[in-house]
Design a protein around this nucleic acid. Structure first.
Lengths: 227, 227
DNA sequence: GATTATTGTAATTAAATGAGACAATAGATA
DNA sequence: TATCTATTGTCTCATTTAATTACAATAATC
């Protein structure tokens, strides 16, 4: 067995389409079961490499911002029944894959990516993968809904202090777009002038050329994050 | 094997003696190796139960405030050489315990306890356990120094927003003691009047009787946290 | 050239924090 | 008993930070 037994990772991949916060969810072949993208860790592989590989396989993206946030470990979190359905739905040998029916602890991660860059790709076990609004996530297998909830909570706590919102945007963006990211994550409206003043005072933004959208009003500047 | 393979926990147990922040460190028999209190997770045990058990065994305390904060996973973090010394130093059979020489990922936790309540007890593998000032931690085995550093960082980030400092104090404490906890954790002096005003404005403290210490000055009130 | 929607920034208010002042007081001193 | 000392609790005022409002600038439309 090339994997570390009883241990997996799952990743809540966040994207932002300009209006709402979304996450990537996949559906397994012939089961109707929805789940977070996840996987196992090879015996000589770092956790980070394993998750990066999983994210890359599903999104095509490398160098994605990501962070582990909690181990989910309830002894009864694995659902043997569901796991069996997934294996059977994919015509996998049950004997050979019996290790997958054991108890698993999973390391919860979240990743932030630029929505526009992604063309979600199902892996060999799942027949679809797609974006779901954060407030419209379907019932997921095992404790994955709990993992999503916790990921969102951690993201909310981190957005202000760690300034990670940029990872959800293209490299150059307007102040309004940045504000919309904050508003989507925090689920509250922010004051335009205070937000702008705050962001500029942090001295983390570089100002570029204006963005002319052909709209009948003053054109906003584009910004990027320094280095 | 009754444990989950390749996975362990380690716990940075913080205490406060009124002056400085301290952590519990144990030394293994006949090896000169220092380490954090840690252990393994039984196949049907929750992570939290496992860590609680470990903390209780070493301190005698139950219902301790504790939080997991990171998985440490470097494929080369285990030091086979050190592990062998520990097993040999305890006259353990190497064959039988060879699983302990494999790669381990560990879930880092920190715990906050009332220093006065604790009489540290070595476990069967270690011949001493004791308090060390946070700025005078000896060289620890594997990546345990890194775990300590990270635990302190997380504690510093959490002290203000999550108000967990109370766990380092007896149930009733003076405003000065509370300030000293904050100062020890943040490693900076705070303004007495601002600190007092801030704490009182948060509406989390309950005021009790005064504490008469027999000193020639006004006696301070005792406070406790509202449940 | 006037109009419209939005942007960038300045001006004004309000809130939080820093810094100091001072009365209250538990015991020590004499 | 009266005075002195160290510390506490609270107040005031200055300073900093943040919220709110106001307004000029401007890109395209009419």
């Amino acid at each position: 067995m090339k994997f570390i037994p009883n241990l997996s990772y799952d990743c809540v991949i966040f994207g932002f389409n300009g209006k709402t916060l979304k996450i990537l969810i996949l559906e397994y072949h012939n089961t109707g079961l929805f789940a977070l993208p996840g996987g196992f860790i090879k015996k000589d592989q770092s956790l980070k490499d394993a998750v990066n590989k999983g994210v890359e396989d599903r999104t095509g993206l490398t160098n994605v911002f990501m962070d582990q946030f909690q181990v989910f470990d309830k002894p009864d979190r694995a659902n043997v029944f569901d796991m069996r359905r997934i294996l059977e739905g994919n015509n996998k040998d049950l004997e050979e894959n019996s290790w997958m029916l054991e108890r698993f602890l999973t390391v919860g991660h979240y990743a932030l990516i630029n929505y526009e860059d992604v063309d979600p790709k199902p892996d060999h076990l799942s027949d679809s993968i797609g974006w779901y609004d954060i407030d419209n996530v379907p019932q997921l297998m095992m404790d994955h809904n709990e993992i999503v909830d916790k990921a969102l909570e951690v993201l909310r706590n981190n957005i202000s202090e760690k300034l990670i919102g940029m990872n959800l945007l293209p490299q150059k963006f307007t102040m309004k777009q940045l504000q919309q990211v904050f508003e989507a994550i925090l689920d509250q409206t922010l004051r335009r002038t205070s937000f702008q003043r705050k962001m500029l005072s942090l001295d983390i933004l570089e100002r570029h050329e204006k963005l002319f959208e052909g709209k009948a009003h003053k054109a906003p500047y584009l910004y990027s994050f320094k280095q």
